[in-house]
Lab assay of single mutants.
Amino acid sequence: STAGKIFRAMYDYMAADADEVSFKDGDAIINVQAIDEGWMYGTVQRTGRTGMLPANYVEAI
């Protein structure tokens, strides 16, 4: 389960779609929910934006 875990971005990511979020390497991602194998839903702490993000760009900390 991803509940209550904080994730950290390992790479920069530029949102490719309106429902995705952009983030930079080192950003903390909070309130994360796993959607499926490849995608998560969460909030980028630095920007306050919430949306979909690729699971392979982040790691649990």
Score class of each variant (00 low, 15 high):
Asp17Met: 01
Arg49Ser: 13
Ser1Glu: 12
Asp25Val: 14
Phe7Cys: 05
Glu37Gln: 13
Trp39Ile: 03
Met40Phe: 11
Val58His: 07
Glu59Asn: 07
Ile29Trp: 00
Ala28Glu: 14
Tyr11His: 15
Tyr57Ile: 06
Thr50Ala: 11
Ala18Gly: 13
Pro54Lys: 05
Asp12Ser: 14
Tyr57Glu: 07
Lys5Asp: 09
Asn56Leu: 05
Met10Trp: 03
Asp19Trp: 06
Asp25Ile: 09
Ala9Ile: 02
Asn31Ile: 04
Asp36Arg: 14
Thr43Pro: 00
Asn56Met: 09
Lys5Ser: 09
Tyr11Gln: 14
Ala28Gly: 04
Ile61His: 11
Met40Pro: 01
Tyr13Ser: 03
Met14Trp: 10
Ile29Asn: 06
Arg49Trp: 02
Asp27Glu: 07
Leu53Gly: 02
Asp19Phe: 06
Gly48Trp: 03
Phe23Asn: 05
Met14Leu: 12
Tyr57Lys: 09
Ser1Met: 11
Gln33Thr: 14
Lys5Thr: 15
Ile61Thr: 13
Glu37Trp: 06
Val32Gly: 05
Gly51Pro: 04
Val21Pro: 05
Val44Tyr: 00
Ala18Gln: 13
Val58Asp: 07
Val58Arg: 02
Ser22Phe: 02
Tyr13Val: 01
Gly38Thr: 11
Thr43Cys: 08
Ala34Val: 12
Ala60Gly: 09
Val44Ala: 04
Ala60Arg: 09
Asp27Val: 01
Glu20Val: 00
Glu20Asn: 04
Ile30Asn: 08
Ala60Glu: 15
Met40Thr: 07
Leu53Ala: 08
Ala16Trp: 05
Gly38Asn: 15
Gly51Leu: 01
Glu59Ala: 08
Glu59Asp: 01
Lys5Ile: 12
Gly51Trp: 03
Gly51Thr: 01
Tyr11Ser: 13
Gly38Leu: 11
Ile61Cys: 08
Asn31Asp: 10
Ser22Asn: 05
Ile30Ser: 07
Met10Leu: 13
Gly4Cys: 07
Asp17Ala: 07
Met52Lys: 15
Ser1Gly: 13
Ala60Cys: 14
Gly26Pro: 02
Val21Met: 07
Met40Tyr: 10
Lys24Met: 10
Glu59Leu: 03
Val32Phe: 12
Asp12Gly: 04
Ala3Val: 11
Ala15Leu: 00
Gly51Cys: 02
Ser22Asp: 08
Met40Asn: 04
Ile30Val: 11
Gly42Arg: 01
Val44Thr: 00
Met14Tyr: 13
Gly48Cys: 05
Ala18Trp: 06
Pro54Cys: 01
Asp12Leu: 00
Pro54Val: 02
Lys5Phe: 13
Asn31Lys: 06
Gly4Lys: 11
Ala15Gln: 08
Ala34Asp: 12
Ala28Val: 15
Gly38Tyr: 14
Ile35His: 09
Trp39Val: 07
Asn56Ser: 12
Ala9Ser: 01
Met10Phe: 00
Lys5Arg: 09
Asp12Tyr: 00
Asn31Gln: 09
Ser22Ile: 05
Asp25His: 14
Glu20His: 13
Val32Leu: 04
Trp39Arg: 11
Arg49Thr: 11
Ile30Leu: 10
Gln45Ala: 13
Thr43Gln: 07
Ser22His: 03
Tyr11Cys: 12
Ile35Ala: 11
Tyr13Ile: 00
Gly48Asp: 08
Asp36Glu: 10
Ala55Trp: 01
Ile29Lys: 03
Leu53Pro: 06
Asn31Trp: 04
Ala55Val: 08
Ile29Leu: 10
Val44Gln: 02
Trp39Gln: 08
Glu20Arg: 01
Asp36Val: 06
Trp39Ala: 05
Asp27Ser: 02
Phe7Lys: 08
Ser1Cys: 06
Gln45Trp: 08
Ala3Pro: 09
Ala28Leu: 15
Met14His: 12
Gly51His: 11
Val58Ser: 05
Val21Ala: 05
Arg46Val: 06
Gly48Thr: 02
Pro54Leu: 01
Lys5Asn: 15
Asp36Ser: 14
Ile35Asp: 09
Arg46Gly: 03
Ala28Arg: 14
Phe7Ile: 01
Ala18Val: 13
Met14Val: 15
Ala16Phe: 10
Thr50Gly: 06
Gly48Met: 00
Phe23Thr: 06
Ile29Cys: 01
Thr43Met: 06
Glu37Thr: 07
Ala15Phe: 03
Asp17His: 06
Ser1Pro: 09
Met40Gln: 03
Gly26Arg: 01
Val58Met: 08
Arg49Gln: 15
Ala28Lys: 14
Met10Lys: 13
Glu59Gly: 08
Thr47Gln: 03
Gly4Asp: 08
Thr50Cys: 07
Tyr57His: 08
Trp39Thr: 13
Gly4Ser: 10
Phe7Trp: 12
Ala15Arg: 04
Ile30Lys: 06
Gln33Leu: 09
Glu20Leu: 00
Asp19Lys: 14
Tyr41Gly: 05
Asn56Thr: 13
Ala60Ser: 08
Asp17Leu: 00
Asn31Leu: 07
Tyr13Ala: 01
Ala55Gly: 06
Asp17Pro: 00
Ala3Asn: 13
Ala3His: 14
Ala15Asn: 06
Val44Arg: 01
Val58Ile: 12
Ala18Arg: 11
Lys24Thr: 07
Met10Thr: 12
Trp39Met: 08
Tyr11Met: 13
Ser1Phe: 12
Glu59Lys: 13
Thr50Pro: 09
Gln45Leu: 06
Arg46Tyr: 01
Asp17Glu: 08
Pro54Asn: 12
Gly51Lys: 04
Glu20Met: 01
Lys24Asp: 02
Val44Ser: 04
Met52Thr: 05
Ala34Asn: 13
Ala60Met: 12
Asp27Lys: 06
Asp27Tyr: 15
Gly38Glu: 13
Glu59Trp: 00
Leu53Glu: 04
Phe7Gly: 04
Phe23Trp: 08
Tyr11Trp: 10
Ala34Leu: 11
Ala9Asn: 08
Met14Gly: 05
Met52Pro: 02
Met10Ala: 03
Gly4Arg: 08
Gly38Val: 13
Ala15Pro: 08
Asp27Asn: 03
Met10Ser: 08
Ile6Met: 14
Ala34His: 14
Ile6Lys: 10
Phe23Lys: 07
Leu53Asp: 01
Gln45Ser: 09
Ile29Gln: 00
Ile30Asp: 04
Glu37His: 14
Asp25Arg: 15
Thr43His: 03
Val32Lys: 05
Asp36Cys: 12
Ile35Lys: 11
Gly38Met: 11
Asn56Asp: 08
Thr43Val: 02
Tyr57Thr: 09
Val32Gln: 04
Lys5Leu: 12
Tyr41Gln: 11
Met52Asn: 03
Pro54Ala: 01
Tyr41Met: 14
Asp12Trp: 00
Asp27Leu: 00
Ala60Phe: 06
Tyr41Ser: 13
Ala34Cys: 14
Ile35Cys: 12
Gly42Asp: 03
Asn56Trp: 07
Tyr11Gly: 14
Ala55Ser: 12
Val44Pro: 05
Phe23Val: 06
Tyr41Phe: 12
Gln45Thr: 07
Ala15Gly: 08
Tyr41Cys: 08
Met14Cys: 14
Ile29Ser: 07
Phe7Glu: 04
Tyr13Pro: 05
Gly42Ile: 02
Phe23Asp: 03
Tyr41Trp: 13
Val32Thr: 09
Ile6Gln: 12
Ala28Gln: 13
Ile6Leu: 11
Met14Glu: 15
Thr47Cys: 05
Val32Trp: 03
Arg49Met: 15
Gln45His: 09
Gly26Lys: 04
Asn56Glu: 10
Thr50Leu: 00
Asp12Asn: 09
Met52Gly: 03
Val44Gly: 06
Ile35Ser: 07
Ala55Ile: 11
Gln33Phe: 11
Ile35Val: 13
Gln33Met: 09
Gly48Gln: 10
Val21Trp: 00
Asn31Arg: 06
Ala34Arg: 15
